[in-house]
Amino acid sequence: MRVRLNQVGHGFPSRPLLFDQITRDLEPGRVYALAGPSGSGKSTLLSLLAGWAKPVRGSITRRGQGTTQWVFQNPHGVARRTVLDHVTTPLVAAGLNRAAADAAGGELLAQFGLADLADQPFKSLSGGEAQRLMLARGMAAAPGLMLVDEPTAQLDRQSARAVTATLAALSGSGAIVVIASHDPETLAACTDRIDLAEHAPC
């Protein structure tokens, strides 16, 4: 999937625009840091990229195959369902039978360092584990575009580093990964950067 932002600007009715004139081509296999202070519109731009809202100015075009996955700031899972169940949901939804989904899910969990927790319920996970599980579930859906919103904001330093390492590894996934964050370590793990402060209307 390729995504092109063409002079994109957005804001909410009767308020000044949050950002304007963003023109950028997003390439598969790259990890983009979406930087900016709180309230600069990082989550809003993610929702425009997801296609859940339309920009008030400019346009966003997508070409090619692939779904969009969004990983939120706070991991949200089904408290009593297992870790494995979470990653197999997109696989089963795609038509795999249970055995095939379990096998593929197990591999994904190993990739995200969660293999030992496969049978644990979601509610037993730490914040960092849960966030990595959300990333694994997102990847299980074979996305063309992966949107990650403040993935380390709620985590302690050690957990944040584990998640950041996982995010850095996504650069080889073939998906476009956009990470909204203001954590320097997370931003440093990215290959490209979109700074909303540069696009704030004067």
Partner: peptide, 19 residues
């Protein structure tokens, strides 16, 4: 999604207390 997986997912939600 396979039909039997729909039933199985419902069963897992019931068994796990999610429902």
């Amino acid at each position: 999604m396979l039909t039997r997986e729909v039933f199985r997912e419902a069963g897992r939600n019931l068994a796990s207390g999610t429902s």
